[in-house]
């Protein structure tokens, strides 16, 4: 069912309250910008929350060097459009060790290039709060997470010992070795995100819209060949398919879906009809039951 304007308004108001609370209560917050649709909504909400003042914190992108090319170009467009203070970080040690999604196991690759990279960037900049676009409907360990979620020393999450969160009163206090993760989109669903994008004309990445793109098949998954680093099996030739992406990540680990949806309203239709869990297209999540919970305890978003 399509989310009504009233539902979107209620969700928006609460997200704005959370963003403002984060800006006011923390010494040095940062917004994690992953270039996807949730990040797009998060940015839009941040603009609204602080208008007419600019967004009072920097945005940060953890670049694994394996993102879709169109993600990077879109990121630069957004920096210009919103006049963002963008921090980019890549785990240089990982690059030096040639950690990549083909030769390294997907979960180890993710740990080094995303989780460790994120921890490095948070520590180096001494951020005490990191705002992320995660939603509770994405995955079952996320369904348990607080809106203001404390990370212990080393950015560890202890899911069995979470701080109680009551009413709309948040406890932003942390000790010297703790940090906070903040999730303003906790109560939003995937469909809410798309309906909101449609209603508010939020700019989103072109990769979400169906287009002829070169793909190869890996098991049942369709992977787009985005550059010449992709190791083709001898003699293999990518085929052109009309595809789009439901989530955006590292291109070798993000499967495409066949689709004809070229507008936001067509995407909304598709999301309402297909009804597959959105992270089904993420190759890193399904490796083992609980893999999201495990990654999160190590500091992943």
């Amino acid at each position: 069912m399509k989310s009504s304007s009233e539902i979107l308004k209620a969700l928006e108001n609460e997200s704005i309250e959370i963003l403002r609370e984060t800006a006011a209560a923390f010494r040095k917050p940062v917004l994690l910008y992953s270039i996807g649709k949730d990040s797009a909504v998060l940015l839009h909400l941040a603009m609204k929350a602080f208008y007419p003042a600019p967004i009072p914190f920097p945005v940060m992108h953890i670049d694994t060097t394996w993102k879709f090319r169109e993600m990077i170009s879109f990121r630069e467009e957004m920096v210009e459009k919103y006049n963002l203070n963008l921090i980019k970080h890549t785990n240089a040690e990982g690059v030096a060790e040639n950690i990549n999604p083909f030769n390294t196991g997907a979960s180890e690759y993710t740990r080094i290039m995303k989780t460790v990279a994120l921890r490095q960037a948070l520590d180096a900049n001494q951020f005490d709060a990191a705002i992320g676009g995660s939603r509770r409907d994405e995955e079952r360990s996320r369904a348990k997470e607080r809106i203001f979620s404390v990370r212990e020393a080393g950015h560890r999450w202890d899911p069995r010992n979470q701080r109680p969160e009551l009413w709309r009163t948040y406890n932003p206090k942390i000790t010297n070795d703790q940090t906070m993760r903040v999730f303003p989109l906790s109560d939003w669903t995937e469909l809410d995100i798309w309906n909101y994008i449609e209603e508010n004309d939020v700019p989103v990445n072109p990769l979400y819209f169906a287009k002829e793109r070169p793909v190869v098949f890996r098991g049942e998954q369709m992977i787009m060949v985005d550059d010449d680093r992709f190791p083709l099996i001898n003699g293999e030739v990518p085929v052109m398919k009309k595809i789009r992406f439901r989530t955006l990540g590292c291109y070798p680990l993000t499967a495409a879906v066949e689709s004809d949806a070229t507008t936001v309203s067509e995407i909304v239709e598709e999301v309402m009809n297909v009804k597959l869990s959105e992270r089904a297209t993420r190759l890193i999540d399904g490796e083992k039951e609980d893999s999201m919970e495990k990654k999160k305890t190590e500091g992943y978003f």
């Binding site: 069912m1 509770r136 079952r140 360990s141 369904a143 348990k144 069995r160």
Partner: peptide, 25 residues
């Protein structure tokens, strides 16, 4: 939700879920 919960067949912490009501709410 959590691994420990599935092992023990109990609920330890609050889980949040969204549901569409049939009247649009």
């Amino acid at each position: 939700g959590l691994e420990a919960e599935r092992e023990q067949g109990i609920t330890i912490d609050v889980a949040y879920r969204s549901m569409s009501l049939l009247n649009g709410r």
